[in-house]
């Protein structure tokens, strides 16, 4: 199979460091600690064009900025799916419809939508890791005829930690040749599906690497175990794509903190193949 080509060093931001003031036009509660925010410019436009996998710096203006992937976009909005885990996200979760936020971007590269054409795509994600995957998955569904079979192996700690319930249970399963494999780590009365960690479930499903690309996103332990499982299933590191996280401040490859060796995740990434990461001083820990 031909190696995937991923763009790197993608300086496409319309704003470097100074955000544009935007407003929240929709807020949906995904789980007890995850909300999705739709963001629009004050004059009702989508803040900027971006490709699936790109990120942006969203700020609750007086409190600070954080980098998030764009989890979805529409004609006139960008959507960010944000877990409440720290100072800024706490403030973000407290905002209400019509409140203003700052936004700058888009930063970094994107998933190789060209290179994936004609291929089967296996998404593997856990918890909030579905947010960046969803941007790509939605893109593939919007261009369904160009791509092969789509599988999503998705997991959450409990039923209540699963994101995008409408998508994973109702919308996506009805799409042509889309196959959902959802599991939880801890069973509960309202869950009748698979109870399993992601990696063993992935191995049990025994996906063939033939003509298939895996796209992986999750926390360090999910990442490590699922990567091992994918390699065990025979996937070539060049056919495993991931999107990395690091602490970021500038987004334009200057402030220094998101480097992995000579690469800056904000500018050269966040999307890499595992074959590329093998050449960098990087580990899932």
């Amino acid at each position: 199979m031909s190696a995937l080509t991923i763009e790197h060093g993608c300086a496409r931001a319309t704003e470097q460091l100074v955000p544009v003031i935007c407003k929240l036009v929709d807020i949906s509660t995904e789980t007890s600690d995850v909300k999705a925010f739709r963001v629009q410019t004050l004059d009702g436009q989508r803040p900027f064009d971006c490709s699936p996998g790109q990120t942006a710096m969203l700020s609750v203006i007086p409190y600070g900025e954080c980098m998030f992937c764009v989890s979805a976009q529409g004609e006139d909005y960008l959507e960010f799916t944000v877990k409440r885990v720290g100072y800024v996200t706490e403030q973000l979760h407290a905002l209400t419809l019509g409140d203003t936020v700052g936004l700058r971007g888009p930063y970094g590269n994107w998933f190789p939508t060209e290179g994936l054409k004609g291929k089967d795509v296996l998404f593997v994600g856990g918890g909030i890791g579905l947010a960046p995957l969803r941007a790509l998955l939605t893109y593939l569904l919007d261009h369904r005829e160009s791509y092969g079979r789509i599988d999503l192996v998705y997991s959450g700690s409990t039923r209540d930690d699963l994101l995008f319930l409408d998508d994973i249970f109702h919308v996506w399963p009805k799409q042509p040749d889309v196959h959902m494999h959802t599991s939880v780590y801890r069973e509960s009365a309202d869950w009748s599906g698979e109870v399993s960690y992601t990696a063993p479930y992935l191995e049990k499903l025994a996906f063939s690497p033939e003509g298939r690309v895996a796209v992986l996103c999750g926390g360090p332990s999910l990442f490590r175990t699922c990567l091992a499982s994918l390699l065990k299933l025979g996937f070539d590191p060049g056919s495993i794509i991931t999107t990395l996280e690091m602490r970021m401040k500038c987004g334009i490859g200057k402030c220094g903190r998101c480097n992995v060796g000579s690469k800056y995740i904000c500018l050269d990434g966040p999307v890499f193949t595992m074959a590329e990461l093998e050449d960098l001083p990087w580990s899932a820990d």
Binding site: G9, C10, A11, Q16, I252, G253, K254
Partner: peptide, 13 residues
Amino acid sequence: AVFLTKGYEDEFY
């Protein structure tokens, strides 16, 4: 090299 190359000319530098 840092502030003026690799895609972005830093707007404050």
